Structure formats: C-alpha cells, structure tokens
Measured scan of single mutants.
Amino acid sequence: NLRWTSEAKTKLKNIPFFARSQAKARIEQLARQAEQDIVTPELVEQARLEFG
C-alpha cells in the first residue's frame, strides 16, 4: 500500500474534484512504476502535467 506525504495530499486537493479520483489512480500508478512506496509532490505534479 502506498503512503502519501502531507505535501502530496495537499497538491491532490488542488486538483478539481471531478478529476481527482482519476488523477489519484494515475499518481499511484506512476509511483508503482517508479517502484516507490511513498507518493511525493513531484509525482502529483507529474500527473497534473499529463492531465493538462
């Protein structure tokens, strides 16, 4: 299971509600691909840039 830093959680809250669950799934996918067990603000930002 993935842990989220408080900064990453804050960044996730800045994503519009309607896109948040999809973004969260993508962020967690990116973390797993990078073999990380902690979601960082950088991963959230990477996903945000993908979504535009």
Rank of each mutant, 00 (worst) to 15 (best):
N1I: 11
L2K: 02
R3Y: 13
R3Q: 12
R3F: 13
W4V: 00
W4K: 00
T5H: 04
E7A: 12
E7W: 03
E7Y: 03
A8F: 00
K9T: 11
K9N: 07
K11P: 01
K11T: 07
K11D: 05
L12C: 04
L12S: 01
K13V: 06
K13A: 13
K13P: 02
K13C: 14
K13N: 14
N14L: 14
N14Y: 10
N14V: 06
N14F: 08
I15V: 05
I15S: 02
P16N: 05
F17D: 14
F18T: 05
F18A: 07
A19I: 14
A19E: 14
A19M: 13
A19F: 14
R20G: 03
S21W: 09
Q22Y: 10
Q22K: 13
A23L: 15
A23F: 10
K24I: 15
K24L: 10
K24R: 11
K24G: 02
A25F: 08
A25P: 02
A25K: 13
R26A: 07
R26N: 04
I27A: 15
I27K: 00
I27L: 02
E28A: 04
Q29T: 08
Q29C: 07
Q29Y: 09
L30D: 01
L30K: 04
A31S: 03
A31L: 03
A31M: 03
A31T: 06
R32C: 05
R32T: 05
Q33I: 12
Q33S: 08
Q33C: 10
Q33W: 10
A34Y: 13
A34K: 12
A34P: 01
A34F: 13
E35G: 15
E35S: 12
Q36H: 08
Q36F: 09
D37L: 12
D37M: 11
I38T: 10
I38L: 11
I38M: 09
V39M: 01
T40Q: 03
T40I: 03
P41I: 12
P41N: 05
E42K: 06
E42I: 05
L43G: 01
V44K: 00
V44D: 00
E45A: 08
E45C: 07
E45P: 01
Q46F: 09
Q46A: 11
A47H: 07
A47C: 08
R48H: 09
R48T: 13
R48F: 14
E50I: 11
F51T: 06
F51E: 04
F51L: 13
